[in-house]
């Protein structure tokens, strides 16, 4: 159940960003989650919905998760292949001298945000 721990940190990171950037409300939060990051996305969203109401800045936010493919590189034949399909052993030459290039990341790509300045400007136009 490490999704709960990760969600806690995501909320904390976004709270900090909100304080730094004078953000009042956060809308859509876009995450990039690797195929082999070990995060169960539906469980992650459940945890998020449970936690977000406890953070005023995040209470109306929605989570959008982009799944990123996992790619492994073979040191022996210098080819790349899909990690999920083939695992540690290279499907081209059978070598185990392989390493993950990408696919275990868990990144906040971008957030949709309303800042104090946005509110001040919209007040002016009204």
């Amino acid at each position: 159940m490490h999704e709960m721990g990760i969600v806690l940190h995501l909320a904390k990171t976004l709270d900090q960003t909100a304080a730094d950037e004078k953000i009042i409300k956060i809308g859509r939060v876009t995450l990039q989650v690797g195929e082999v990051s070990g995060i169960m996305t539906d469980l992650f969203c459940d945890c998020w919905n449970y936690f977000k109401v406890r953070h005023p800045v995040l209470s109306d936010s929605t989570l959008q998760i982009e799944t990123m493919p996992a790619v492994t590189f073979c040191d022996n034949c210098k080819k790349e292949y899909g990690t999920v399909e083939h695992g540690r052993q290279c499907p081209f030459c059978g070598s185990y001298e392989t390493w993950l290039i990408t696919g275990n990341q868990c990144v906040i790509k971008e957030i949709e945000a309303m800042t104090e300045d946005d509110v001040a400007q919209s007040d002016k136009t009204e």
Binding site: L31, V107, I108, K109, E110, I111, E112, A113
Partner: peptide, 15 residues
């Protein structure tokens, strides 16, 4: 609403 690019790992606050 405006879009802010973060490109920060989720556990950055813990790190």
């Amino acid at each position: 609403m405006k879009i802010i690019e973060l490109k920060e790992t989720i556990t950055a606050s813990n790190d």
